[in-house]
């Protein structure tokens, strides 16, 4: 563990807590993409299959349980509890256009052609594009609530911090995972225009409103 990865995990944790707080306090899921949350649930389920078979540390197990538990709770809030406030018309990204290519790529490009490894690779590739339905929804509605912007900033920062973690681990431990790094770079790049909007607007107290 290093400071970059710890900050990254805390940023990820913060993003999930911000999202839950937004939903619980406002009792509304307006502006939140249910499809992205379903993709995140798929990512966590596929990646943490070894939750009960391989023990890394208490921290690792607790975080995995928390991530899986909260993402399914989020889906419950969106599609059941606060279903009336779910904006399905604007949450119209065709996720099959993500899952099929990502699934194919996981079969072709992986560290080892073994079921668990391919499923892990699928979760890494899927995570890098899982936010697209959410960003697409914001571009369609033309704006994002400030609390949703904080959620996205924390979520985007988590993988950017993981990139720093991988640089550190390469020099400190000789650890290098090309698949995770490339997917992490793609994932972080997808947030860049949002980061720009966040820093130039939200930090000055304005709302994010994209040209619709």
């Amino acid at each position: 563990m290093n400071i970059f990865r710890l900050c990254g995990d805390m940023s990820h944790l913060a993003a999930i807590i911000i999202l839950l707080l937004k939903m619980w306090k406002t009792r509304s899921v307006a502006g939140i993409s249910g499809k992205s949350q379903i993709l995140f649930a798929t990512v966590f389920t596929a990646r943490y299959l070894d939750l009960f078979t391989s023990f890394i540390s208490i921290y690792n197990t607790c975080m995995k349980v928390f991530f899986i538990g909260t993402v399914y709770f989020t889906i419950y809030l969106i599609y059941m509890k606060f279903k009336a406030t779910y904006d399905s018309n604007h949450d119209s990204f065709r996720v099959e256009f993500l899952i099929v290519p990502v699934g194919g790529l996981a079969f072709l490009v992986n560290h080892e052609f073994a079921p668990l490894e391919i499923i892990w690779t699928f979760s890494i590739y899927l995570e890098s594009v899982a936010i697209l339905p959410q960003l697409f929804m914001i571009s369609k509605t033309g704006e994002a609530e400030t609390i949703t912007s904080h959620y996205l900033f924390a979520l985007g920062s988590y993988r950017a911090l993981y990139l720093c973690n991988w640089i550190y681990r390469y020099y400190a431990e000789g650890f290098f995972d090309l698949i995770a790094v490339v997917a992490g770079v793609v994932q972080t790049i997808l947030y860049c225009d949002f980061f720009y909007l966040y820093i130039t607007k939200v930090m000055k107290g304005k709302k994010i409103s994209l040209p619709a």
Partner: peptide, 10 residues
């Protein structure tokens, strides 16, 4: 399998 880095990250 020696090429697959250990999976100790979230």
């Amino acid at each position: 399998d020696e090429f697959a880095p250990k999976k100790d990250e979230l």
